[in-house]
Amino acid sequence: MKLLTHNILTSNIIKGVTRGFPLKIKSSRLEVKEVDFNPDFILRILPKLDWSALRQAATEVGYGNGLPEELPSSLEGDDSLQKTIHNILLQVEIVEGELECPETGRKFPIQNGIPNMLLNEDEVS
């Protein structure tokens, strides 16, 4: 699971939960896999993501260095920040670990790099 995926997941699927974002991450196995750098994609995807959640997630898994608290209004030309963001969004991969609902503490496993957000019938909203 890349942090891109983490940035779009919520646990608002649990009955009664309304503040299920961002999920906390615990990583027990992390790999960095090389992915081709595509600056155009980074520039287009960032406005659609939640920067503070991304920064927090990167920090939780040990890759928070060099991430500004606030995203500069334009990243155009800032090659080094673009590459840092590329790395945390697409290269850092949580292979094994857990996501945790910030409201209830309900845990969701990440196995083989894939988060499993399925609920038991009695948890569904």
């Binding site: 940035n7 779009i8 997941l9 646990s11 699927i13 083989n112 988060p115 499993n116 957000m117 399925l118």
Partner: peptide, 28 residues
């Protein structure tokens, strides 16, 4: 899991999630 393997086999990057329809990604 198999979808991730298919993406690897064809040298593309995808982001698989196990959930019901789109419920876990709908809000974001």
């Amino acid at each position: 899991k198999v979808a991730a393997q298919t993406a690897d086999q064809n040298k593309v990057l995808i982001h698989p999630i196990v959930c019901d329809l789109v419920n876990a990604i709908n809000d974001q």
